[in-house]
Design a protein around this nucleic acid. Structure first.
Lengths: 218, 218
DNA sequence: CCACTTGTGTCATAGTTGTATCATAAGACT
DNA sequence: AGTCTTATGATACAACTATGACACAAGTGG
């Protein structure tokens, strides 16, 4: 889940963004002026991205940008239509992108995703071999074809991919995916491993390490 | 043991990295300019990872990255603080990660470990003679060929390697690997030692110390 | 009620492990 | 040195255990 800071003095726009981004799965915080934004940033530094209006009371967007830069949080400027100079100046100062008001929320989300991906903060997709796993939509694509996995299968797959080439001990694996202590002597884990192997055709990748657990290999 | 190439024109930084990485168990080579780095890479291609400064005399980091790419060696960029554009460009060009200067060595090591793992090069392995034992994947390679060991054999091997040239008393060895008190008068340990010797062809390395135990010698 | 997911049980099989046996080597003792 | 005693090498085998494959029942949510 990403933390987004929205800095925008027009409360209508800010709140619209807030609601729509929230729906899209982003955690948002709003600041209605530059000073407030600085305070928030001071307190909680782990934002993943800042949406920054340029025209702000008290401290304007450029000034704030200088303040944000050392924190290495990517910034997308929100600019009024036609203000080409602003946009150029913004990019020169180190913003990662800009969006022209008025905007469609879809565009904002797309740009945010692009910026986050460019900055290496994209944690919402992991891949292995021919499979792409989207952690946010919980969709799995294999060679571009969607594979339908159940919840447990999905969680299991994610854990295996995130620990590729590391043996996952049966009990540990069970406890991580099922979130409860492993009581031994049950075929649950095996069965799910089989189901994953079968659905993905991954007999060759999901290796059994006898008496230890499983390892995703490749 | 990993081979790391450090490409950095600031000798102070390069040498600091060199020393600290050496301490952390990495084999390092330093190059103080891009041309030199290219020469070194030309000669010895088996680096596991390159730490690459972007601002370099003669050939800069981007150019060098193009050169390294076909070798399929992971690259971590070293960038000056705030140079967000550089980082984005670097990642777009195919770097695996970037680290912002000034950095803590701990951070460098952590990132390197992460990158190495992502690239399927495990970081937790011990070696003896012609054998590499990967503790994370529980795989054993002998001259690059995988040797399949059972759980007990593997545990036994690890213990022997970790105590190379030290006599391991039979009872102590048994208790460590089997995790239960040694009751004497059983051929279990001997048998497993034989199996290890046979699978690895290590008759010459695994020495018997009569009436005491075993010692891995070499 | 239905479709789907999830957990359990059973059987067969394959892989692992301990023990028994005999042969041989190492040390001890006369 | 020769002989005896004990420890270990080598091997085969039996017992054990884990896992794959599958069927089915229980749970879950629309």
């Amino acid at each position: 889940m990403y933390n987004i800071l929205i800095v925008e003095d027009d409360e209508a726009i800010a709140n619209l963004l807030y609601v729509e981004l929230k729906d899209a799965g982003y955690d948002c915080t709003c600041a209605y002026d530059g000073k407030c934004a600085a305070d928030i940033l001071e307190e909680k530094m782990d934002f993943d991205l800042v949406l920054l209006d340029i025209m702000l009371p008290e401290i304007d967007g450029y000034e704030l940008l200088e303040y944000i830069k050392p924190m290495e949080i990517p910034v997308i400027f929100l600019t009024a239509k036609g203000a080409l100079k602003e946009r150029i100046q913004g990019l020169n100062l180190g913003a990662d992108d800009y969006i022209v008001k008025p905007f469609q929320t879809g565009e904002v989300i797309a740009r945010m995703a692009a910026v986050l991906r460019r900055c290496g903060k994209s944690i919402n997709q992991i891949t292995f071999s021919d499979v792409i796993v989207d952690l946010e939509s919980r969709k799995v694509l294999q060679n571009g074809v969607e594979i339908e996995l159940t919840m447990k299968e999905f969680d299991l797959l994610v854990d295996l991919i995130q620990n590729r080439n590391i043996v996952q001990q049966r009990d540990k694996l069970y406890e991580k995916v099922w979130k409860q202590p492993f009581m031994g002597d049950t075929r649950t884990l095996d069965t799910h491993i089989q189901r994953l192997r079968k659905k993905l055709g991954w007999e060759k990748y999901i290796k059994t390490v006898f008496r230890i657990g499983y390892r995703l290999e490749g």
